[in-house]
Computed example of a mutant assay.
Amino acid sequence: MSTDLRVVLTTEADQIKADALAEQLITRRLAACITSMPVQSCYRWQGKIERAQEVQLLIKTSSDRLEELLSALEALHSHDTPEILQMAAQAGAAYAAWALGAVSPDAASAALEARPGNEHPAG
Score class of each variant (00 low, 15 high):
A99Q: 12
R51V: 10
E119Q: 12
A75D: 13
K60A: 00
S36Q: 12
S63T: 05
P105F: 05
R44K: 09
L85D: 01
A94N: 14
L70E: 13
S41H: 02
L25N: 07
A89W: 05
A89H: 10
A122S: 11
S36G: 03
P38R: 12
R115D: 11
A97Y: 09
S78G: 12
K60C: 03
Q90M: 13
E68I: 00
K17G: 05
I26C: 02
E54Q: 01
A122D: 11
L30F: 00
T61C: 01
T35G: 03
A75N: 12
E23S: 05
M87Q: 05
L76F: 11
A91N: 06
A108M: 05
P116V: 14
S71V: 13
L112P: 05
E50Q: 11
L58N: 08
L58G: 06
A122L: 14
M87S: 04
N118I: 14
R65L: 02
G92A: 14
A122H: 10
I26G: 00
E113R: 15
A93V: 12
V39C: 04
A114K: 14
D64G: 08
A22G: 12
A108R: 06
T35N: 05
A97R: 15
D106A: 14
P105I: 07
A88S: 11
L70I: 13
E50K: 11
T61W: 00
A97P: 07
A91V: 05
Y95G: 10
A102K: 07
Q15G: 09
A75Y: 12
V55W: 03
A91R: 06
A102I: 08
A89E: 09
Y43A: 11
E54D: 00
R28S: 15
A107T: 14
W98L: 03
V55E: 01
A89K: 09
D64N: 13
Q15I: 10
I16Y: 05
A89Y: 10
W45C: 00
E23H: 03
Y43N: 07
A107N: 14
P121L: 03
Q56A: 04
P116D: 14
V39S: 04
S104I: 05
I59L: 04
H77I: 00
A22V: 10
A96L: 09
H120K: 15
Q86G: 03
G47V: 08
V55Y: 02
E67G: 11
L25C: 06
Q56R: 02
T35Q: 05
A22N: 10
M37S: 13
Q53N: 09
Q86R: 07
E23C: 04
P105G: 07
G117S: 15
R44A: 07
K60P: 00
E50H: 12
R29K: 15
K48N: 01
V55P: 00
E54Y: 01
K48V: 03
L76R: 07
L25F: 07
S71A: 13
A96M: 12
L57C: 01
G101C: 15
M87F: 10
P116M: 14
R44V: 08
W98G: 02
A110Y: 06
E67K: 15
E119L: 11
A20P: 00
Q53R: 08
G117E: 14
